[in-house]
Amino acid sequence: MKPSGHDLSKLSPKCDIRIQREDFDIAAEITRLTRGRTDTGAVVTFSGLCRDEAGALSALELEHYPGMAEAEIRRIADEAIARWPLTGLTAIHRFGRIRPGENIVLVIAASAHRQAAFDGASFLMDFLKTHAPFWKKEHRADGSEGQWVAAKEEDDDALKRWEERP
């Protein structure tokens, strides 16, 4: 989807989508997004980590659909760029085996002012959780067969708040 009504004299927003096994460096990613332009006044970052509950989890296995994951996140990012005056947007999602305390996902939204950056980052995360083709399987600390993580209804509910927004 192409953004409409944007001032063509402005720099186009930077958009960087990556699906990778490796960890990411949040500070380096902020620099990469804001470097070389002076029209950014606000940067919001969200990072999602692998969370343990009561020592039961040894790791999460993140499975993804390689052909589709990047394309789907790019579609969501394009929608965010069309809805808010963002100067940049980064989304990095890891796959493979991830241990408690390690990073899973990073979203960075940059804009001239903070509200668009907050909204853009939040919108991207809400759609990423329900639309990006990733699945988590638990590996348990006691070595027993882990479960696939079930989708949450509140993730679908979170989408609804964007229906009536700009």
């Binding site: 990423l128 639309h131 990733f134």
Partner: peptide, 12 residues
Amino acid sequence: REAAFFPPMTGG
């Protein structure tokens, strides 16, 4: 060309 089948997604 390609059809994929999967449960509700749990990324993020």
